[in-house]
């Protein structure tokens, strides 16, 4: 198990290095220096600025410097505001982004699990079909379309909830809900398939033949065992949430990382784009790693198999 984790962490670091390298050289491919557009600068001032940010060094030196700084967690400075670091932007945006993401994940997982379990227990009934229609819609309809529609109908037309911004708990509902739709659909579908498979296994029949009560069979045997593989879709789900947050934060004007990222793309703030890209990559790669390790811990079959090797 320990060897496995070490190996995985090494792979993760390698992946991050590849991403950082690609990002760095792609950014170098872009024509001009970041300060060329600022006409007010004199030649000497520009030289001084380039010198300050190390842009006069040869590219390999810049690369080494960049990677060294990155290893220390330093993502550089933004062009948009004077003297602000990308790190501080990310730290500032982290609060709202993590809050919405977590709320969406929690709500979506709970609703999705209930929907999936009910659909499996009432297999081939109206409830099952209903849950699966919701799931197909939830998977198919992009969260930004859903968010826009919610904002228009519930925010603008009905005025039940604030249309945008981030000023209190009621501001969380629409964005978190829009973001959770995909989670609900994915979890419900996965749980239903998993439950149906387990309900058809011999060990469920065996449990019933022991006279174990129906609720015990459902919760102790079926749900418990279905929950284990659910962990494996947490990784893809986290990626989906991050993708969704980029646009959801933009639509609802939430001051999160996603909103800053989209803004940076629109004004070509390269350090922020690079920094956020690497931050997102780190997040996703780390989540996938944690999920894999978690899976090994909660599934006794893998736990022991891993321990022996």
């Amino acid at each position: 198990m320990l060897r496995y984790i070490t190996q995985r962490i090494l792979y993760m670091l390698l992946t991050l290095l590849v991403i950082a390298t690609i990002t760095f050289f792609l950014m170098k491919l872009l024509p001009g220096s970041p300060f060329n557009n600022q006409d007010k600068l004199t030649e000497t001032q520009r030289y001084a600025l380039n010198e300050k940010y190390g842009l006069n060094d040869p590219v390999p030196v810049q690369y080494i410097n960049y990677i060294t700084k990155l290893a220390q967690g330093d993502l550089g400075y933004t062009f948009q505001f004077d003297g602000r670091t990308v790190n501080s932007l990310i730290v500032n945006g982290m609060g709202p982004s993590a809050t919405v993401g977590f709320e969406a994940l929690l709500f979506g997982t709970i609703v999705g699990l209930l929907l999936g379990i009910l659909a499996a227990l009432r297999h081939n009934t109206f409830l099952d079909y209903g849950a699966m229609v919701i799931a197909v819609f939830g998977i198919a309809i992009p969260s930004f379309v859903f968010a826009g529609l919610l904002q228009y109908y519930i925010g603008v037309k009905l005025e039940w909830l604030p249309v945008a911004f981030w000023n209190g708990p009621e501001y969380h509902i629409l964005p978190a809900f829009s973001l959770s739709v995909g989670v609900i659909a994915t979890v419900a579908r996965f749980m239903r398939t998993e439950m149906l498979e387990i309900l058809g296994t011999d060990y469920i029949l065996m449990a019933r033949s022991k006279g174990v009560s129906k609720s015990s069979v459902i919760f102790k045997h079926s749900v418990r065992n279905s929950l284990i593989p659910i962990v494996t879709i947490l990784g893809p789900m986290a990626i989906g949430l991050i993708t969704g947050s980029l646009v959801i934060e933009n639509i609802f004007a939430i001051p999160g990382i996603g909103e800053q990222f989209v803004k940076a793309i629109q004004v070509n703030d390269y350090p922020v784009i690079m920094g956020t890209t690497i931050f997102y990559s780190f997040l996703i790669v780390a989540i996938i790693l944690i999920v894999d390790i978690l899976y090994g811990i909660i599934d006794p079959r893998i736990r022991v198999a891993g321990g022996k090797s």
């Binding site: 011999d202 060990y203 029949l205 019933r208 033949s209 022991k210 006279g211 065992n225 079959r301």
Partner: peptide, 19 residues
């Protein structure tokens, strides 16, 4: 079930709950 009449199934590889 289990108390008065109980049952053994064909495949022992699948008739026990793995977790």
């Amino acid at each position: 079930r289990g108390a008065e009449i109980s049952m053994i199934f064909q495949d022992p590889m699948t008739s026990l709950n793995p977790t």
